[in-house]
Write a protein that binds this DNA or RNA. Structure first.
Length: 938
RNA sequence: GCCUCGGUGGCGGAAUUGGUAGACGCGCUGGAUUCAAAAUCCAGUUCUUUCGAGAGUGUGGGUUCGAUUCCCACCCGAGGUACCA
């Protein structure tokens, strides 16, 4: 009997599903362990071999933890709202829900073949209304809260209203996106409903505001910063322009400091934490006020180098600022307006390609230096961003390269305020070597000293104050799309009013088509029933909108990251109708112990979900500040694309090595299924299957035609995808699982290469032969030899250590060595072989279950305890290091050490206990820890 | 430009905290079994070599009895970021 993986794998997959082996219990005496995968977006292309990489790793760990006696929660679901389904709907008229269902079915089939230990009873879909009901409820909570800086947490908006009623807003210390006018209590109480709402919206955590947003005309929607790659849309690669639009935003900036600070609490990859730190972009500096000559207004600038204030020779304002139009003099008016206009028209891409090209216009106005009282010119320039800091900077040419270039180009004076430094060629920006001169009371101070001194002076004279800034922007939350969560808001007197909680979910309406409506209105404007009956709390037809109780509903939907910001809590209690999850169940599972997913979500999902968590934490809906203790980023599996070369202008293809001059040829992408033996082209097959090539001529070398291979991202459009189904058919899921782990370190990107898979498959066949000689089970109850025990226990140790550190690739090596050694030792001992098979079962669960059963066990192998390493079976060889040394040594358990050094002759360690060595005057202490370092201190 | 990570045979990659570099797998070479193939098994496989040995972990220095590992400078690659004052 040989290793019949097809029969084995379908048998056990059925068994696991039927017996609900992996169903997690919400009550258990066992310790809990929550293993989470980033749930997939079910695209139409199905899975390729790259997708399951992370799932395999997390599945191994989940199965391992079950063996170790944990109550493991390992769920899976679908992030099923999203753009591709909608684009497909626009093209074909099919409802996105239908295509999404179809795709999910296909995904599930593919996932099921790989033998994952998911608890499918907890499956969730973000596009189901019983799920997005809660996403909507969290939006309402954000709408009904504001961020209180004094308590440093979110508080109910009612608290704020109460304060307004008693004393107005003068003493309020809350996060707002712009300055709010000041009022006292009697003023507040006299305000109309509309006016009150327009004030409150400035404080809400979910707020509506006119914003410069990234508008993608081709997609007909706005995009968040993290959805733009190199100035074009991540999806489709379309141009993006700045546009002013009224948009919903979430006040993530209120949490900037906590998001930064709490990175210290979590065990996430350093690279990813660093990305989040940079994205948050904290900087310390000062705000400085400049008077404007001839105006009452002041210009406020933000600077991280207030120590260089005496080097400021001009101010530059962002062209978009309101004040620009006010202060520019008549003589320059035309030029200034033209410049403002051209800035607004530029697309993201233009602005990026124009990088370092210096442009700007003098406004004709002058500011007054706060200390010297000298006049300095006010310019505008698009290198100053309107939405960072104050949108204005003080130009210090000697201390900032951009200011330096600007001053040089426009012949503005440059003052050197650095001691013993030349600024002939470029600005001097090294803070650590800065010594200030030529600067009145700051002379001879270092950067740190000058920084503190000048801020004190500014604050004393009311000329400015210390300030911290963040690059992080509030998250735009409106999308002009159909296939997303409706925002539970209606408009009364053009003011947004939240639906009450009881009327959720606000279901996505049916629409006739999914394109934008009139005048670019979002697709929801195409719905006939999309108005809110306030009295009866229900959706009604738009035609009643003139009725005094009926109001228009919000037309925008939520972005893709809304549903994924809290889904890990829904898995805990996915059926709950009363709450997003029961609070007792939440306090049992608490948080995610291991989260596995791609690093491409570093500044998107992984930041938004942390923000969402902190908000829920403030409301005491969740028990922890961070939802995921540990995160592992799996690297991408890359595809190996194939190109063949066609002579320019001819239908003639030439084999790779015969080409001398590449410029005479066009590379043509072909599907890798037409390749045999790595890079040889199957011309016959290609000609038959693809009409494009049926009349082509192929020039071969030695009768064979070779293609060029190139490593790039695996994708359907690049014709380089490898389908896991094919691998399962040919080698089985256990082989695929092990091979994907064997390819290399989990977090590294690595190209897919099928040629190595035979080694792993051969291992499983060899493993089978350890138990079976043809038809006969050869395992017996003989006692194992010392060597066998040593092999087993060193494998237990290596594999356990490596699983704990997520080095799954070296685990596989250890298994291979173990099986080889046991084969050589002709091991037949059940005591050894049973343990080996348990050890292997997280990696190759199907074959392990099968063998386990054939050995006469009636329970599932997943319910068995993991073997425990016993040190006594490891006997290390004695090692001699005939050298003199100074410092640390590392040995295994038994040690004999001779030294040629005159001072120490011998250190002998045996049985971990007796230590003999000749005392030396120079040796102060010898610390010996078994299996650790021997530290000899001189 | 800045930030982060990395660079080891023909290839994917091992090497615990500074202690025999190249584990394990692929590929390749030779052999066994076979009518033959598949499958399987055994041996070899960093490079150079006058077969004594010598060189060798991107390059050049340094620390150390000893460096793939630590330090400095540089080169190359991947990812992130894009005028953030």
């Amino acid at each position: 009997m040989s290793y019949d993986f097809k029969k084995i794998e379908s048998k056990w997959q059925e068994f696991w599903a039927k017996n609900r082996i992996f169903k997690a219990q919400n009550k258990s005496s066992k310790p809990k362990f929550y293993v989470l995968d980033m749930f997939p977006y079910p695209s139409g292309a199905g899975l390729h071999v790259g997708h399951p990489l992370g799932y395999i790793a997390s599945d191994i760990y989940a199965r391992y933890k079950r063996h170790k006696g944990f109550n493991v929660l390992h769920p899976q679901g679908y992030d099923s709202f999203g753009l591709p389904a909608e684009q497909y709907a626009i093209e074909t008229g099919q409802h996105p829900a239908n295509t999404t269902d179809k795709n999910i079915k296909r995904y599930r089939e593919q996932l099921d073949r790989l033998g994952f230990s998911f608890d499918w009873s907890r499956e969730i879909r973000t596009s189901n209304s019983n799920y997005y009901k809660w996403t909507q409820s969290f939006f309402l909570l954000m709408f009904n809260h504001y961020y209180c800086n004094d308590k440093n947490k979110s508080r109910p908006i009612e608290d704020l209203i109460k304060i307004f009623e008693i004393e107005g807003n003068r003493r309020i210390n809350a996060v707002t996106d712009r300055k709010v006018e000041l009022f006292n209590s009697s003023e507040w109480n006299s305000f109309s409903f509309k006016k009150k709402q327009n004030i409150l919206i400035n404080y809400r955590l979910a707020y509506l505001a006119e914003k410069d947003v990234n508008w993608c005309p081709k997609l007909g929607t706005v995009l968040a910063n993290d959805e733009i790659i190199n100035g074009v849309s991540e999806r489709g690669g379309y141009t993006v322009v700045k546009k002013k639009m009224k948009q919903w935003s979430l006040r993530i900036t209120a949490y900037a400091e906590r998001l930064l600070e709490d990175l210290n609490l979590i065990d996430w990859p350093d690279a990813l934490k660093e990305m989040q730190r940079n994205w948050i972009g904290k900087s310390k500096g000062a705000r400085v006020f400049f008077d404007i000559k001839g105006f009452d207004d002041k210009i406020e600038v933000y600077t991280t180098r207030p120590d260089t204030i005496f080097g400021a020779t001009f101010l530059t304002l962002a062209p978009e600022l309101e004040i620009v139009k006010k202060i520019n003099s008549k003589s320059n008016k035309k030029e200034v307006l033209k410049y403002i206009d051209s800035t607004l028209k530029k697309s993201q891409l233009d602005r990026m390609s124009d990088i370092r090209e210096i442009t700007g216009v003098f406004t004709g106005a002058y500011a007054i230096h706060p200390f010297t009282r000298k006049l300095i010119p006010i310019w505008i320039g698009d290198y100053v961003l309107a939405d960072y800091g104050t949108g204005s900077v003080m130009g210090v040419p000697c201390g900032d390269q951009r200011d330096y270039d600007f001053a040089k180009k426009f012949k503005i004076s440059i003052v050197n305020i650095f001691k013993n430094v030349s600024i002939e060629k470029e600005a001097f920006t090294d803070k650590s070597e800065t010594i200030i001169t030529n600067s009145s009371f700051l002379n001879n101070l270092s950067f740190e000293k000058a920084f503190e001194t000048v801020i004190k002076e500014l604050e004393k004279n009311g000329l400015g104050f210390k300030e911290v800034n963040y690059k992080l922007r509030d998250a735009v939350f409106s999308r002009q799309r159909y296939w997303g969560e409706p925002i539970p808001i209606y408009y009364k007197e053009k003011v947004p009013v939240p639906l009450n909680f009881e009327s959720l979910p606000l279901n996505l309406p049916e629409v006739e088509n999914y394109l934008p409506g009139k005048e670019g209105a979002p697709p929801l404007s195409n719905a006939n029933s999309w108005a809110w009956d306030e009295k009866n709390n229900k959706v009604v037809k738009n035609k009643y909108i003139d009725d005094k109780n009926i109001f228009p509903l919000e037309l925008n939907t939520m972005p893709g990251w809304a549903g994924s910001s809290w889904y890990f809590y829904r898995y805990m209690d996915s059926e709950n109708e009363e709450n997003f999850a029961d609070s007792k169940i939440i306090s049992y599972w608490k948080d995610v112990d291991l989260y596995v997913g791609g690093s491409e979500h570093a500044t998107g999902h992984l930041l938004y979900s942390r923000f969402w968590q902190k908000f829920l934490f403030d409301l005491e809906l969740v028990p922890v500040k961070e939802y995921s203790k540990k995160l592992i980023n799996q690297g991408m599996i890359l595809g190996n694309s194939a190109f063949i070369y066609r002579k320019v202008g001819e239908n003639v293809f030439v084999s790779k090595k015969l080409i001398k001059n590449l410029s005479d040829f066009d590379p043509i992408r072909i599907d890798i299924k037409y390749l045999i033996n790595e890079d040889e082209l199957d011309i016959k097959n290609l000609k038959i299957s693809s009409s494009d090539f049926s009349n082509s001529k192929f020039i071969c070398e030695n009768g064979k035609f070779f293609a060029k291979r190139e490593i790039e991202k695996m994708s359907k459009s690049k014709y380089n995808v490898v389908n896991p189904d094919e691998i399962c058919d040919k080698y089985g899921a256990d082989t695929l699982r092990m091979y994907e782990m064997f390819l290399g370190p989990i977090e590294q990107a690595k190209p897919w290469n099928t040629s190595g898979i035979s080694g792993v498959h051969g291992f499983l066949k060899k493993l089978w032969r350890l138990f079976y000689d043809n038809e006969i089970l050869i395992v017996n109850d003989s006692n194992p030899s010392k060597e066998m025990l040593k092999t087993l226990h060193s494998t237990i140790k290596k594999v356990t250590d490596d699983i704990e550190s997520f080095s799954f690739n070296t685990c596989i090596s250890s298994f291979m060595i173990c099986v080889n050694e046991l084969q050589n030792l002709k091991c037949r001992s059940r005591k050894i072989l049973e343990k080996l098979i348990i050890l292997l079962s997280p990696f190759a669960p199907h074959i392990s279950e099968e063998i386990w059963e054939r050995l006469g066990n009636s329970n599932s192998i997943s319910e068995v305890d993991y073997p425990i390493f016993d040190q006594k079976y490891l006997i290390e060889n004695e090692k001699n290091y005939p050298i003199s040394f100074n410092g640390k040594f590392r040995f295994n358990i038994n040690l004999s050490l001779s030294l040629t050094n005159n001072e120490i002759k011998e250190i002998v360690l045996s049985d971990n206990k007796t230590v003999n060595f000749l005392k030396s005057k120079k040796v102060k202490k010898v610390i010996i820890v078994p299996n650790k370092i021997i530290n000899i201190v001189f």
